[in-house]
Nucleic acid binder design. Structure first.
Lengths: 194, 194
DNA sequence: ACCTGAACACCGTTCAAGT
DNA sequence: ACCTGAACACCGTTCAAGT
């Protein structure tokens, strides 16, 4: 039964990852904790299924007509928005071998950077940089204790402000790398921003 | 007794954060788990004391004679090196309200960016970006399961390669922001790199 | 096929009691 | 002042048993 996964997702969103207990999930479904073990072998498996479900919703990184900079910015902000409402999800994903990214999505993302003009090896590092930064921010902003992500911090900087600043300067930095790389290596490079 | 904190630090380094249990700490000291409660009120307090001890070792961000870019790079790499050998430390700090940075260190860090020429508000965001990126990488690289940080990944990119790439493009991005800001706002700006 | 109840191991923690 | 033992609440999980 896949109602269990639904219950897991609901619980994560409402009470956070740490509150997802076999007892709580069972209570959500009106059964006994042991009933869950018939469908799922483990609590780990339950969490994996639930987080997979949440992440499956987020679209992959793809090149849009506006060029790689805007496409990347949109993707990263969207990724944050789609996950920041699940307290503890970031902390969970960051401790996972794949960091919550399927092979397919990673391949697409790396292809994106190559299409933008980066060399194969730089594309991998660029993707790793962009993703791990946002995942870090998701982990910070979707904390288990603090509640929502919309907390204003000291000096009036919201999580969103910090994120957009970070994403933008990160993209600026990547463009510098791209320029430096194009100057050195005369590969077939298509610059998609003027 | 502060032997308890030592035992905690030792256990974190050796077995990781999740293995730090009252029983394990007690066994390390040759006492009963309850003995610890005489010196410490809580497991949380023990973990706080232990992580504080680890972090106290790392120096603050300070301007060196080589300019802000090199100083920042050195600091961030050093921060990573000093913490990456403690499995689960990043995951713990990232869930902490202060992210493992004391008020004093944060103030110094923000002053560093102002000294580099950033406006007060941009300095805060720049610091947040740099620190949260590295903290994210620490969390990823100092995982609880995977063991050491020196694992070669797919395509021959080590954690270190990813980190240095990330830190460098991040600094490049920050320099772009600094240039753009200096052009717009005619503040008393001292550029410390040519 | 689908669910339950009793039982176990392992946490953190309290409290009364020992020296 | 410093430590212990028994006991409790709360986890995840196993297993034999019920329908």
């Amino acid at each position: 039964l896949e109602d269990i996964v639904d219950a897991g997702v609901t619980l994560i969103r409402r009470d956070g990852f740490t509150e997802v207990t076999m007892k709580a999930v069972a209570a959500e479904l009106g059964v006994t904790p042991m009933a869950i073990y018939y469908y799922v072998s483990d609590k780990d498996e339950l969490l994996r299924l639930a987080s997979d479900r949440i992440i499956k919703e987020t679209p992959p990184l793809a090149m849009g007509p506006e060029g790689w900079k805007i496409s990347l910015e949109r993707y990263l902000l969207r990724l944050w928005e789609d996950t920041v409402d699940y307290p503890g999800l970031g902390a969970y994903l960051i401790n996972t071998p794949t960091l919550g990214i399927t092979r397919e999505k990673r391949t697409k993302a790396e292809a994106f950077f190559e299409e933008a003009g980066f060399s194969a090896s730089t594309a991998k590092m660029a993707w790793s940089l962009a993703y791990s930064y946002v995942l870090g921010r998701i982990t910070i902003d979707a904390r288990l204790d603090g509640g929502g992500a919309e907390i204003r911090r000291r000096s009036g900087l919201s999580s969103r402000d910090l994120l957009t600043f970070g994403v933008n300067t990160l993209i600026e930095g990547l463009e510098e790398i791209l320029i430096a790389e194009s100057a050195v290596a005369p590969e077939p490079v298509r610059r998609s921003s003027p």
